[in-house]
Design a binder for these strands. Structure first.
Length: 511
RNA sequence: CGGGGCGUAGCUCAGCUUGGUAGAGCGCCUGGUUUGGGACCAGGAAGUCGCAGGUUCGAAUCCUGUCGCCCCGACCA
């Protein structure tokens, strides 16, 4: 049992923070609500970026960059949009410091028009698209940007909700409503596929009700994931913006019919929150568990020795083990890199994934815990007894299962297969958890009792209604997470109004 | 932004009620014994007590202000 990590059942929130701290993913910063993403955490973000970026490009998108600062007037052009973001904007009002009579620095150079640090870039990008689009031939525009945004949140939690966070925002403009709709759903699929294929995170695809949709959108689609404490987490959104932003920013073009019309736009995004989702979906009381496809280190090799003689024997064996895993060429190039007692080798340069050898002269238990808490999928243990028998003990982080393998059998292909298998096991486990924690409610009382005793997703008949959803939130702190795409198609009784309806929704308490 | 709690060594905290030389555990450094799931012994370094005022012979301690953090609520990727 990890002594620096609180058990989930005792204090889930503290457990989450302890896991992050123990794995050194992130740290608090001197600035309220802003976190430092440490190398261990950032490399997971890089893996997420690498995979998603590939998927964006595979679907025809290109990357670009737009400014951090947005003129205040832009934000106010779309009525719902400004309404939605006004309360969480950081605003730049001055351009320099001057010394006052006491020699203290005070802001000076007041700006004519305040600038807003982007909470999202629909407005800035809408403004630019208006200039880039003249003809239907200029469409579609399929641009994504990787950047930071800032939302002055009242309460923050590492990765889940920070004032500044990293994300990607895709912004597209289309000739027709139908094309925009297709794009919106395509990107939702990209997100859902990514979540299960890279993060081993099963998600529910659906549509947001009016009370939960993005300010300024016509329709918001989302992927919802379930965390181990039974709370839901919105893991990604894709918005069909209709012509709302096109009208606000004058994105107009001459169509095939020679008539001037407004473009149809979409936007979609996922953020570093995905790291929070990954942590809360997979990790355990021993610390972080990283799904293998985004694991920066796929295996840690742990030498066990006492004294120089044993060390030499063990290291000689490990040298061969490493060569089996990463190849002689990589061993040679790793030798040129400066390294301390922990040597790292690229297992896969395309994904930046590494294998490390922990040569520190500390107790082997320390090393085991060290890499276990950091969520490294596999550990190879090599001690004098193993060397004598010509084997290594391979341990799987997920369940601590272990097997003894002959040196010759440890190969890159073998590890790759183990990683793939692990991915499947983790996805199956998370899927089983989600399914076991998705229940049906036929009455409001039943909904209440499920949310109070079990938590999780509750599926029920529910006619979308803003007032009823406000009451739901006041009563049970729960929200309609989405109207899932998968519908029974049968008719039932709406939980809040008692009328017959075919619409089923997913209700849960959420982060 | 409302309610509550808290700022003392890198971390977790004690000391504050009742003002009088700055403390503990963990971590870190050195040496030794150790090393197959969180070792032990000895020694050592380390803090303008969040910041600014005030009261006082004297403030970590009392008073005022201020900044920040955490928890709960309202708000949210």
């Amino acid at each position: 049992m990890a002594k620096n990590i609180k058990a989930r059942k005792d204090d889930y929130a503290q457990w989450y923070l302890d896991v992050i701290k123990a794995a050194q993913l992130a740290d608090y910063s001197p600035v309220r609500g802003c976190m430092v993403i440490r190398p261990e955490g950032f490399s997971i973000w890089e893996a997420i970026q690498r995979d998603l970026d590939r998927r964006f490009k595979d679907t025809g998108h290109v990357n670009a960059y737009f400014p951090l600062l947005i003129p205040q007037s832009f934000l106010t052009k779309e009525a719902e949009h400004v309404e939605g973001f006004a309360l969480e904007c950081a605003i730049v009002t001055h351009s320099k410091f001057e010394k006052d009579a006491d020699g203290k620095l005070v802001p000076a150079g007041k700006l004519e028009e305040p600038l807003v640090i982007r909470p999202t870039s629909e407005t800035m990008i809408g403004h630019m698209y208006a200039q880039w689009v003249q003809s239907y031939r200029d469409l579609p525009i399929l641009i994504n940007q990787w950047c930071n945004v800032m939302r002055w949140e009242m309460r923050t939690r590492l990765f889940l909700r920070t004032a500044e966070f990293l994300w990607q925002e895709g912004h597209t403009a289309h000739e027709t409503a139908a094309e925009a709709e297709v794009e919106t759903l395509r990107m939702l699929d990209v997100y859902a596929d990514f979540a299960s294929e890279a993060l081993a995170l099963p998600v529910v695809k659906g549509r947001k009700t009016d009370s939960e949709k993005f300010p300024g959108a016509v329709t918001t689609y989302c992927i919802e994931a379930l965390m181990q404490d039974g709370k839901a987490l919105q893991a990604g959104t894709s918005h069909d913006l209709g012509q709302n932003f096109a009208k606000a920013f004058d994105i107009k073009f001459t169509g095939r019919d020679n008539a001037i019309q407004h473009a149809w736009t979409t936007s979609w995004g996922v953020s570093t929150r995905l790291i929070g989702a990954m942590i809360m979906a997979h990790s355990d009381d021993d610390g972080l568990v990283i799904p293998p496809r985004v694991a920066p280190i796929v295996a840690a090799i742990i030498p066990v020795f006492k004294g120089d003689a044993e060390r030499e024997t063990v290291m000689a064996f490990i040298k061969q083990l490493v060569a089996n895993l990463v190849g002689e060429a990589e061993v040679a190039s790793a030798a040129k890199r400066s390294s301390g007692e922990i040597q790292s080798y690229f297992f896969d340069k395309a994904t930046d994934q590494k294998v490390i050898v922990d040569g520190r002269d500390v107790r082997s238990g320390d090393k085991q815990f060290h890499w276990e808490q950091r969520g490294v999928p596999f550990r190879f243990e090599v001690g004098p007894r193993d060397v004598a028998a010509g084997v290594t003990v391979m341990k799987r982080r997920l369940d601590r299962s272990k097997e003894s393998l002959a040196l010759a059998d440890v190969t890159a292909d073998m590890l790759r297969a183990k990683l793939e298998d692990l991915h499947n096991v983790m996805l199956a486990k998370a899927t089983a958890f989600r399914d076991e924690n998705t229940r049906e409610a036929k009455t409001y009382d039943e909904l209440k009792s499920i949310l109070e005793t079990n938590g999780g997703f509750v599926r029920c008949y529910w006619e979308p209604n803003t007032a009823a959803e406000a009451k739901l939130k006041a009563d049970l702190k729960a929200t309609v997470r989405c109207i899932p795409f998968e519908q029974a198609g049968t008719e039932g009784t709406c939980l809040h109004c008692g009328k017959p309806t075919k619409t089923q929704v997913l209700i849960a308490q959420a982060y």
